[in-house]
Design a protein around this nucleic acid. Structure first.
Length: 471
RNA sequence: GUCCCCAUCGUCUAGCCUGGUCCAGGACACCGGCCUUUCACGCCGGCGACAGGGGUUCGAAUCCCCUUGGGGACGCCA
């Protein structure tokens, strides 16, 4: 189809996928999905010095976690050098590029000069009209127009014009023949039929150069949309100082990928007052019109809140997959199944992350709960001996183990012992979980199951009996 | 230094294009309260912003200009 939207995400594998990069990946992916278009993944590894296989793997890993799939690729620029070479030659023979033999030192001096006379540091065009042939150490420079201006018709920011005098004859091929960034992206985007480029606004100043390249190559200029950057709390560019930057670090901290995606998209894009979005809603509603123009500060607290919200909204079955690795880490080998789902159900409203959820789930899987010392000292007292036993006996005789009958038993026990609900419930909580904080008493008992509850109750009775007599 | 971008509560943002319905709405955080067997969830309430100055207009958060502030780019990095 002629008007199919084709977007792309072109990370350079020089580190992990950070929050900002993840966000532009998500924007491109969402836009492609929203428009029923195609999304291409391309690894920009022309800088052989800094690119690593580790980083490539880290990027795949992060995209996999975020649930961003691509329709084409991954392409690797390092495998496309002959394509670039061909285009570079074409640019030279068409008079749009030329060999330059100026040394880096000479160029440095030119830049100094230019700066001194109050302008932008630029190459002065020494070799521009020399018509040099290739020779050892020569680079290829683009012959940029000296006059006029280049207009970016940005889908997000509107029109941005650059005077061509701001540009210099930038290098498109290094002296070893390898392509430079601006050239490689343009060639790739042309040959991969990319027609929509959504990227960080730190690329705005590259855009006129790229547009000129498109024109020199006789190719159609794609749509550009520059999204604002993600800043740290001090409004400076996000960096290690601001804490975790790698998206997968958030997986390890117990975040839900849908929450991460939701959060990142909402940072810079809006749909009225809506804050919570499922993946499908995002695909349905995402558009370029509502991407903001100002940079946003990364706020971990908001991420946490939205994560809690996604946990609350998800089904226990779905959460189980995410939770299991964290249980395993605690040495808990839970199986997917009704017991686990029941457990998760009780933990959902009180877990902001999967780590919290795993912590909260621990007592459900222990052979016997580990009594918190203060908790047992305060609540497991001789006065509870009879009520506790009565509770256990009552439950043992229950045909239907449900909330209704549990309530009845509790009522009876409270009446017989002359104790209020709290006086009974809290000790029971300690007996069953070892702690003073847990899910609601009945839902927790139901999730734990009749057998465990009764045996834990008897354990508590024994514990109280064995207690050295007070006073 | 030069060029480019941006500017609403502490933060994310709605509203701005198509001026009046906005003494500016929502969310996170924070502070109260309610609910309650603990912790949460939930609910109710509070705190809190149109950067400043000029215009245009009957009327400006919304349009224009300037200032200030912030960010980005100026590589044989991407």
């Amino acid at each position: 189809m002629e008007n199919t939207i084709i977007t792309r995400f072109p990370p350079s594998p020089t580190g992990y996928l950070h929050l900002g990069g993840a966000r532009t990946a998500i924007f491109n992916w969402l836009y492609a999905r929203h428009t029923n278009g195609r999304f291409v993944l391309r690894i920009e590894d022309t800088d052989m010095q800094r690119s690593t296989q580790e980083s490539v793997d880290a990027i795949f890993d992060a995209m996999d976690w975020l649930g961003i799939d691509w329709d084409e690729g991954p392409y690797f620029q390092s495998k496309r050098f002959d394509i670039y070479k061909e285009h570079i030659d074409r640019l030279i023979s068409s008079g749009n590029a030329y060999y330059c033999t100026c040394t880096p030192e000479q160029v440095d001096r030119m830049r100094e000069e230019a700066k001194k006379s109050g302008g932008k540091p630029k190459y002065d065009g020494s070799c521009r009209e020399k018509n040099l042939q290739w020779q050892e150490g020569a680079v290829v420079r683009f012959k940029a127009p000296l006059t006029g201006s280049t207009l970016i018709e940005d889908k997000i920011r509107g029109n941005i014009a650059f005077a061509n005098t701001e540009l210099d004859d930038f290098i498109i091929a290094r002296s070893d023949g390898s392509p430079m960034y601006n050239l490689a992206v343009v060639i790739d985007d042309i040959t991969m039929n990319i027609n929509t480029i959504i990227r960080g606004d730190d690329h705005i100043s590259n855009t006129p150069k790229q547009i000129l390249l498109y024109q020199a190559l006789g190719a159609k200029v794609p749509d550009f949309g520059h999204v604002p950057m993600v800043l740290g709390h001090d409004k400076s560019r996000l960096s290690k100082r601001h804490g975790a930057m790698s998206v997968t670090a958030y997986r390890d901290m117990g975040y839900h990928p849908d929450a991460m995606v939701n959060f990142l998209v909402r940072l810079g894009w809006s749909h009225g007052d809506q804050e919570f979005f499922t993946r499908d809603e995002l695909i349905e509603k995402f558009n370029l019109e509502h991407i903001g123009r100002s940079a946003g500060v990364f706020n971990p607290e908001k991420l946490l809140a939205i994560n809690a919200e996604h946990i609350r909204a998800a089904s226990s079955e779905a959460l189980a997959d995410h939770l299991m690795p964290f249980l395993k880490e605690k040495g808990i080998d839970a199986e997917a199944g009704d017991y686990l789902y029941g457990v998760i159900e009780t933990l959902k409203p009180r877990s902001k992350t999967f780590i919290e959820m795993a912590d909260g789930a621990e007592f459900y899987f222990q052979e016997k709960p580990v009594y918190d010392e203060k908790a047992s000292a305060k609540f497991l007292k001789p006065a509870l001996l009879v009520p506790m036993k009565q509770l256990a006996d009552g439950m043992a005789g229950l045909a239907e183990f449900d909330e209704k009958s549990l309530e009845n038993i509790f009522k009876q026990v409270m009446e017989d012992a002359g104790l209020g609900f709290g006086k009974v419930a809290q000790p029971v909580r300690v007996a069953l979980t070892g702690k003073t904080v847990s899910p609601g008493i009945f839902e927790m008992i139901l999730a734990l199951g009749k057998e465990k509850v009764i045996s834990r109750l008897y354990d508590a009775v024994q514990f109280i009996e064995k207690m050295p007599a007070a006073e």
